[in-house]
Design a protein around this nucleic acid. Structure first.
Lengths: 143, 143
DNA sequence: ATGAGTGCAAAGGCTTTGCATTAGG
DNA sequence: CCTAATGCAAAGCCTTTGCACTCAT
């Protein structure tokens, strides 16, 4: 188990930032979610959060390496905890409704993927610290 | 070699749409590009195109299955030809400047990936006709 | 007291839409 | 001719920013 809040606090402190109640609420929500969340989803979960502050805090958390922002085609940015605060995973994106769920690959495949991508990156002189694999399709609700 | 324009025309016709000069210019530009293009990039390549018409035509081409839209973190949507009009490929995205380049994986890895994703999709009752694998990193210009 | 954090409202920036004009069949 | 397509301008929508207020140290 990872001490998400402890890490979040220390990383913010490194950036000269505080771990306020609002920021803790955001991290808490992202930690409990089973996929990246859009801002409307986050606000719905914590009604007291102001929209602008939420965006601002997410940007600050992103800068501190606590939160990772991804974009989907439905117009809303999605936020999740940085990969080293969670288990490495991939996304299942519904092309109809834009929902995103986490999914993990079998270890063997993940290792193969990792190794092959390292080769591709090296060959092309592209510094690739991370890869992102998304399954595009239709979720059960839409399908 | 794929007859991109012929396929584009017939798919548009199926949708009750015409293959006009502007639409042909867009398809031509995307076919010659070596990666997904943003609207500013497309307009720069074909100066006579109007912004609104370009967006509208790209949406129509997307609806007809000729063009595929992807989003990156720099705010601009990117457009590329649909996967069945091009060779299957992946993307190398620069997290600093947002540029996107095409990259192809070794056949063996691609096959492994394909098979494993099929299993993942099946197990989760997620209809996934396609996957999208992106390398996130820093391009040579920014790195 | 002093600077960071907050929240409301307004502004930004990419994309879409309304509407009059043009062009293709 | 008649409908689709075009282009300009205006509106939309998610996100960011300005500014005054509050809170923690």
């Amino acid at each position: 188990m990872i001490d998400v809040h402890g890490l979040a606090e220390s990383r913010l402190r490194t950036d000269g930032q505080r771990y306020t109640r609002n920021r803790r609420a955001l991290v808490e929500a992202l930690d409990q979610a089973d996929g990246p969340m859009s801002l409307p989803q986050l606000l719905q979960r914590h009604r007291q959060l102001a929209q602008s502050s939420a965006y601002r805090n997410l940007a600050i958390l992103e800068g501190a390496g606590v939160v990772h922002r991804i974009v989907t085609s439905d117009g809303f940015a999605r936020f999740e905890l940085a990969q080293d605060l969670t288990a490495h995973h991939h996304h299942r994106i519904c092309s109809t409704c834009g929902s995103v769920e986490d999914v993990t690959l079998p270890d063997a495949l993940e290792a193969t993927l990792e190794e092959a991508l390292r080769r591709v990156a090296t060959r092309s002189r592209f510094r690739a610290p991370s890869h992102q694999l998304d399954l595009i399709g239709m979720c059960r609700a839409c399908g």
